[in-house]
Nucleic acid binder design. Structure first.
Length: 287
DNA sequence: AATGGCGCCTGAACGC
DNA sequence: TGCGTTCAGGCGCCAT
């Protein structure tokens, strides 16, 4: 499931090769979570800038190219702005010079001068949305509720503590919410809490400042290690060059109910919080 | 403002 | 073999 590491790994795998590419054609498959918001033909002729990431979203800036002639959109206009991309639950991007024929789960495809970018997303929780600017709607509305980036200096134990002390939900849910700090989905929230020795059921406002410090460090380290491992490939994630991730092999608790805790020899458990599986060690993760 | 629950989707795994 | 059920979970949205 694409969380911050998978999105970042994907970004790095095609950022430099797509930068500067001229869009030649855009085709859509079945509807994704939200409509594109612009005529696909209006994107033709734009040049793709450097892809960036915010939380689990990717932003592909599009620029006008003054030298461009040829195809234009409605009223002779081409679209600048950019594309906000979310991989949802089952999405992955591929960018390649030669692309096999589109399959039934390929729902967005953009042919450019240096290769084709394709979004494959069987469950269609993902989205590709055009926005005139990152600061304008719809991008602004989608990104507006997001918390801080975990690798920014602004995110630290103090900041986490002051945000959590106003919440009463379980700390696992607070992490998943993404309005305090972005990036952790179910896998990395579980792993970070294990690393910090914190019971995922702990009420957010009951965590001491020192434990928030540990959690902030643990979350950062977990996400960084996952990026280094190329993300987690549980089923079908791979980066834009088709490379699988390996973090699932070094996960300490996720998906390991019944196994021995790698730290204390207790038995790992699976519980359900907010209709989602939580994996943890009831012995060495304390409230 | 914070919180809990719902719905969107499809494929895999499972029980009968 | 075939069918129905459950599960996977990101996240906007709604009601409370």
């Amino acid at each position: 499931m694409p969380e911050l590491p998978e999105v970042e790994v994907t970004r790095r795998s095609f950022a430099s090769t797509i930068k500067g590419a001229r869009i030649r054609a855009v085709r859509l498959g079945k509807p994704l979570r939200w409509p594109l918001g612009i005529e696909p033909a209006a994107l033709v002729g734009c040049t793709v800038g450097e892809p960036t990431r915010r939380g689990k979203y990717l932003w592909l800036p599009l620029e006008h190219d003054r030298r461009a002639s040829g195809r234009t959109g409605l009223n002779g206009m081409t679209a600048a702005g950019g594309l906000l991309i979310h991989l949802g639950m089952s999405g992955s991007l591929e960018f390649a010079a030669a692309m096999p024929a589109a399959g039934p789960h390929d729902h967005f495809e953009m042919t450019t001068s240096t290769g084709t970018l394709r979004l494959t997303d069987p469950r269609r929780f993902g989205a590709v949305v055009w926005s005139a600017a990152l600061a304008d709607d719809p991008a602004a509305r989608l990104l507006g509720r997001l918390g801080v980036e975990p690798f920014e200096a602004e995110f630290d134990g103090q900041m986490l503590w002051s945000a959590l002390k106003r919440r009463r939900v379980a700390v696992k849910q607070a992490l998943l919410n993404g309005d305090i700090v972005v990036g952790a989905g179910n896998i990395y929230a579980c792993e970070a809490l294990f690393r910090a020795g914190i019971d995922p059921r702990t009420r957010s406002d009951r965590l001491s400042r020192a434990r928030c410090e540990r959690l902030a460090v643990a979350l950062r380290a977990t996400l960084a290690e996952a990026v280094d491992a190329g993300g987690s490939t549980l089923r079908d994630f791979s980066d834009a060059r088709g490379r699988d991730g390996t973090f699932q092999l070094q996960a300490k608790v996720y998906g390991r109910a019944g196994q021995v805790c790698p730290r204390c020899d207790g038995t790992l458990r699976r519980i359900v919080q907010a209709q989602r599986s939580t994996y943890f060690c009831p012995r060495c993760q304390v409230r």
